[in-house]
Nucleic acid binder design. Structure first.
Lengths: 148, 148
DNA sequence: TTGGACACTTACCAAAAGGTGCATACTTGT
DNA sequence: ACAAGTATGCACCTTTTGGTAAGTGTCCAA
């Protein structure tokens, strides 16, 4: 299928042919990548994972200050989701004033490892990526295109 | 810094201490992972990359049918962004009826390779992930929690 | 006694992302 | 002549996501 591509315009049938290439292996996910991304998508999740992976158990306030621009609401929210997804473990020391920290579960650690290549890629190609983003920033913003 | 965590409640200062851990290397990105994710986030982008990586140059219609639940508008949109980000190359054969195909640039290929571990991770842990997601689906939906 | 730190929670709102459906211009098959 | 297929564009709308500002209860330090 990936060899012979001499067909130019797909025949009226053949539609069914290339459907189902990325076959759902389990209900809800189209493939492994899909599953993974559902779990890491969230504006701050990768940063959280990355930070906790490096620092080990991290207190809420630490994270809060470290991530900077994140708000309490969203940080908590993403931590909860990560916890619900079994990637981080929340430890409440039941002290007062409250003390809580977050660490990675084994699952979270394995994910963090799988993220390393992405991290590397990003670092290596950051220059190109940010250049492109800088340009796009101009015409991406609503209603400010060089057309008018 | 990751060794001694004997401090319990952070002192009124020290706030500045753990700030700036994930130091921005370039304007706009907090780290490599951040850069990468900005480029791959989009509901269908990873699937597109993955598909094109496997199949080589892929016609629009093929993608459209293969990805299934995606709409034209969004597919086109994501392809454009991927193109603008230098990950895919659009080839217009200027024929009529139109013929266009999409392939990976070298940059795109390198990214696709970096995605492999994520893919693997997702595949390996898909069972756990989807189980958790199934549960969450119940109480995540607005206003139907087991509390009431 | 006021104020800040701790880890959250809630109500409300804005922006981003995604989806629907119709339109294009041209060709091929029926 | 008409439907279907080619790769898109556009207007409009809903869903999802993220952000803001306020409040909770308990403690300690000034």
């Amino acid at each position: 299928m990936s060899t012979d591509r001499s067909d130019l315009i797909s025949t009226p049938a053949q539609a069914q042919a290339d459907v189902q290439r990325c076959t759902p292996n389990l209900p809800g996910f189209t493939c492994g990548l899909d599953a993974t991304l559902r779990v890491v998508s969230g504006k701050w999740k990768p940063l959280i994972l990355y930070f906790v992976a490096q620092d080990g158990p991290t207190r809420y306030g630490e994270l809060r200050r470290a991530i900077r621009d994140v708000s309490d609401k969203v940080l908590i929210q993403q931590l909860k989701e990560l916890e619900a997804d079994g990637l981080v473990k929340r430890t409440d020391y039941k002290e007062v004033p409250p003390r809580v920290d977050y660490s990675l579960t084994p699952l979270g650690q394995s994910l963090a490892e799988a993220l390393v290549p992405l991290c590397t890629w990003g670092t290596e190609h950051m220059a190109e990526v940010s250049r492109v983003f800088a340009e796009r920033a101009t015409w991406t913003r609503p209603g400010r295109q060089p057309t008018g």
